[in-house]
Design a protein around this nucleic acid. Structure first.
Lengths: 338, 338
DNA sequence: TTTGGCACTCGGCGCATACGAGTGCCAGTT
DNA sequence: AACTGGCACTCGTATGCGCCGAGTGCCAAA
C-alpha cells in the first residue's frame, strides 16, 4: 500500500503533466506543490511509484510521466468530478434548448461537448430497444409499397420502405395500423417481438403475406446491431494532441469512423454511470493512447444511450468528467420535455 | 500562348509531382517522360512556365511544383476524366445495392467515395426544395401535439414536432392531412409555399390556429438553409497529406465540421456537371491548399444534390474525377429505383 | 526517515561542414 | 532561331560534434 504522501506525489505528477504536457521532475514538483519535503525525498517516492508501475520515464534522465495504471489510480482515488460553474450550466441549457428535433439535439450535444472539453465528442442516438413506442405509422406510397415509420418517446424516427408481395388495400392498411398500435403503443420496443408474434393471424389470407413482410421488417429494424447510430464531432481537436502527430492521429480517426468500433466500446459496460477507460483498457488498438469518458443518458431514470468524449490519456479527467456528466443530465431533461 | 511542348512539360510536371510528392527537376523530367529534348531545353521551358505563373519553386535551387494556376490549366486542357474499370464499376454497384434506406445510401456512398479516392468524401442529402413531395403525414401524438412527417420521392424523410395552440381533433387532423396531400402530393417542394397559401381558409375558426401553426412549421422546414444536410467521411485520409501536418490538417478538419461552410462551397455553382475548385479558388481560407471535386447527382435528369471529395491540391485529378462521376451516376440510379 | 551533496546520464540545441540536386546563363551547334 | 552541353553557383538537408542543463540514483549524515 502506498503512503498518503506518495499518493499526493502521484496526484501532483498527473496534474502537472496534464498541464504542461512535459515529463515532470522532482524539483519542479516541490516548487509547484507545497509537499513539505525536499526534492530528494520526492525522488525516493518517485522511485517507489515507478517500481509499482504508476509512473515511468520516457528516457533515462528525464522526468516522469504517469502510466495508464497511474491515471487509473488518479481517477479512482485521487480526483473527484469537477462540477460545472453556474454560467457554464446556463450556457449548456441555452444551447440545447434551441433544438428543433432529435437530430438537432444530438448535433448540438456533439458540438457542445466538443467545445466544452476541447476533445472529440461522441453521442449515441437513443437506442430503439431501450425506448418506448410512441407510435407506429404505415403509409401506402403505392399499391404494393408501404413505408413503415417508428416513433419513439425520445423523438427518434426510423423509417423503412417495404415492397409488398401483393397489393394492399387502404382499409387493410388502416386495420393493420390500428391493431399494431393498440398492441405496442406505450410499450417498450424490446417487448415488441413478443407483442406482435401472432398479429398476422387475424388477417385475411390474401393480406397475410404483406402483414408478415411488414412485421419482419419491423423486427429487423429493431435488431441491436443495425439500430444503433451515433454522431461524432470535434475531430479538429485531435490536432492538439502531441507533436508526434500522424502516427497518433491516424488510427484514432480511423477508429472514430468505424461506427461499429465506437458502438462496441460504448456498449462494453451496461453501467449507466460514468465510465472511464484509460489507454490500453480500450480494446481497440488504435485507441491505446486515448481515454474514453462516457456516461449513460436518458429521459427518465433509465439510460437510453451513451455519450462521451475521446481524448488523450493525458487529459483533465475531473474537468472532462464534470462536463460529460453535466451535458448528459441536460440532454436527459431535453428529451423528457419533448 | 504556350507552345505544345511547354504544355507537355507542364503536364509531366503535374503528373510527376502528384506521384512523388516532391518538387520535380529538369533532369528527372527528361528521364521519366520521353519529351525528345535535353534537360537544358526543358529548363528554358520551365523558366517560361514559371514566368507565366503555372509553376513555382519552393526554394531557390529546388525543383518546380505546379501552382494553383498550373493545376487549373492541367484540369481544363491537359487531362481528361479517367473512366472506372469494369470491375470497379461492378464493385460500386454491389456496394450501393445493399442499402436499406436513404441514410444507408448516403453512408455507403461516403464510405465508397472515401475508399475509391483515398480522400475525404462529402455527400449532400437530396435537397428537399429540389425534390418532389411523395407524401405529407400528420400524426396526433397527444391532444395538442402533432408530428409532421415529410416524405420525398428520393426517400428522404423529415419530421417536426408541433405544439398546437389548441387541441386538435382526429377528424380535423384527417381533414387537414387529406387536403394537404391532395394539393402537394406529386408536386415539387419548391412550389409548396404557393400551393398551401390559402389552405387555412377552409377550416373552422377554432382549428385555424393549429392549421396555421402546422403550415408555418412546414414552410420553415423547407427554408433552404435549414433543410440541407450532409455526411462526411474518410477524414483519416487527411493524414496522408504531407509531412507538414498539424498546420495543414487542422483548418481542414475545422472547415469540414462546419456544415454551413461545406454546404456553401458545394452550392456555389448551380451547374450540375463536374466542378473542380483548386486551392485558393475555394472561398474558405482553411481550404486554400485543398481542391474540391464535386458533381450533382439525382434520380432523373435533374440534380437533387451534390457529392464530391476534398483532397490536397496535389491530387490525381483524372482518377478522382472519374470516381466521383461514376459514384454519382450509380447513386442516381439507386435513388431512381427506390 | 529525511536530507543535502555529488557524480553521472542523456536528450536537445547550436554550429560548422559536406553533399548534391537543381538552377541560370552562355557559347557553340544544328 | 531553337536546341544542347558545360559550368559556376545556390541553398536546403544531412551529418557530426560539443555544450548545456534538467534530472536521476546513490550515499553518508542528520
Amino acid at each position: 500500500m502506498l503512503s498518503e504522501r506518495r499518493l499526493q506525489v502521484l496526484r501532483a505528477i498527473v496534474q502537472d503533466y496534464v498541464g504542461t504536457e512535459e515529463p515532470v521532475g522532482s524539483k519542479a514538483l516541490t516548487e509547484r506543490h507545497s509537499l513539505g519535503v525536499s526534492p530528494a525525498t520526492v525522488r525516493n517516492d518517485m522511485a517507489a511509484l515507478e517500481d509499482e508501475g504508476y509512473i515511468a520515464q520516457p528516457h533515462t534522465s528525464a522526468g516522469r510521466i504517469p502510466t495508464d495504471k497511474g491515471y487509473r489510480l488518479f481517477v479512482d482515488k485521487l480526483a473527484g468530478v469537477k462540477p460545472m460553474t453556474a454560467p457554464e450550466r446556463r450556457a449548456i441549457q441555452n444551447f440545447l434548448d434551441g433544438a428543433v428535433d432529435l437530430d438537432d439535439v444530438v448535433a448540438r450535444t456533439v458540438r457542445l461537448l466538443a467545445q466544452l472539453t476541447r476533445q472529440v465528442a461522441v453521442v449515441q442516438y437513443p437506442s430503439l430497444t431501450r425506448s418506448t413506442v410512441r407510435h407506429v405509422e404505415l403509409l401506402a406510397l403505392a399499391p404494393a409499397r408501404v413505408m413503415l415509420v417508428l416513433i419513439t418517446d425520445t423523438g427518434r424516427v426510423e423509417q423503412r420502405m417495404i415492397d409488398c408481395p401483393a397489393p394492399f388495400g387502404e382499409t387493410s392498411l388502416a386495420d393493420l395500423r390500428a391493431r399494431l398500435n393498440s398492441r405496442v403503443a406505450g410499450r417498450r420496443f424490446a417487448d415488441v417481438p413478443q407483442l406482435v408474434e401472432d398479429l398476422a393471424d387475424g388477417f385475411d389470407l390474401e393480406d397475410r403475406g404483406t402483414v408478415c413482410t411488414v412485421l419482419s421488417t419491423l423486427l429487423e429494424t429493431l435488431v441491436e446491431e443495425n439500430e444503433e447510430r451515433l454522431m461524432i464531432g470535434g475531430t479538429a481537436n485531435l490536432t492538439r494532441f502531441g507533436h508526434d502527430f500522424p502516427l497518433t492521429i491516424r488510427p484514432v480517426l480511423e477508429a472514430l469512423e468505424e461506427q461499429v468500433v465506437m458502438l462496441k466500446l460504448l456498449g462494453e459496460t451496461q453501467d449507466p454511470g460514468m465510465t472511464v477507460r484509460i489507454g490500453h483498457e480500450n480494446a481497440h488498438e488504435g485507441l491505446n493512447s486515448t481515454s474514453i469518458v462516457s456516461v449513460g443518458y436518458g429521459s427518465g431514470g433509465e439510460a437510453v444511450a451513451k455519450l462521451g468524449v475521446v481524448g488523450p490519456t493525458r487529459m483533465d479527467y475531473p474537468g472532462t468528467m464534470g462536463a460529460v456528466r453535466a451535458v448528459a443530465r441536460y440532454v436527459g431533461q431535453i428529451l423528457a420535455e419533448s
